[in-house]
Simulated scan of single mutants.
Amino acid sequence: MNQKSQTTKRCGIDHIKLQNIKSNNRNNPKSISGSPRDDGSPCNITFRRSNPSPTTESNEILSLQNVRDLIQEAMDGLLDRIDRRITKIIEAKTKEIFKEINSVKESINYLNAQYEDMQKELHQKSKEIEKITNENGTLRAIVKDLGTRLSIIEQQSRMCNLEIQCIPEHKTENLTNVILQIGKVSGYELQEGDIHKCTRIAKMNPENKRPRSVVVKFSNPRVRDTFMANVMKFNKKNRDNKLNTSHIGIGGEKKSIYVVDHLTPETKKIHAKTREWAKKLQYKYVWVKNGRVFLRKTETSEHIMIRDLTQLESLS
Rank of each mutant, 00 (worst) to 15 (best):
K269Y: 12
I89T: 14
G187R: 01
N28L: 15
F218W: 05
Y188I: 06
I89F: 11
R296K: 03
D14W: 11
H262Y: 13
E106P: 01
V223E: 00
S103T: 09
S219I: 13
L243M: 06
N177G: 00
S23N: 07
A272C: 15
N28T: 07
D240C: 10
D261C: 14
N25R: 01
V286E: 07
T133N: 11
I13T: 05
T264Q: 15
Y188Q: 00
I250N: 00
K269A: 05
V185Q: 04
R49E: 10
A272Y: 12
K236G: 03
K197H: 13
K280P: 02
R48M: 07
I45F: 11
N2R: 15
N244P: 04
E96Y: 13
F227R: 10
Q65Y: 02
G193E: 03
S35Y: 01
I89K: 12
C160D: 13
T267L: 11
A141H: 04
L180D: 06
Q114G: 13
D145W: 02
H262A: 10
S256K: 13
K237L: 07
I16E: 08
D69K: 15
S31V: 00
N208Q: 08
I82R: 12
V216I: 07
V216F: 07
C198H: 09
N51L: 08
K255W: 06
G291E: 00
K120V: 04
G12P: 00
T264G: 13
M75W: 03
S246P: 00
A113P: 00
F98D: 13
K105H: 08
I32H: 01
L281Q: 00
K127A: 08
M228P: 02
K120T: 08
H15V: 04
R10V: 03
F47W: 04
W287F: 08
N102V: 09
I82G: 02
R224T: 06
D225S: 01
H196L: 10
S126R: 11
S316C: 03
H247Y: 11
L180P: 04
N51Q: 12
K30A: 02
I129K: 13
R200L: 14
V231S: 04
G187Y: 03
N27D: 10
N66D: 02
H262D: 12
L312Y: 04
R224N: 07
N177P: 03
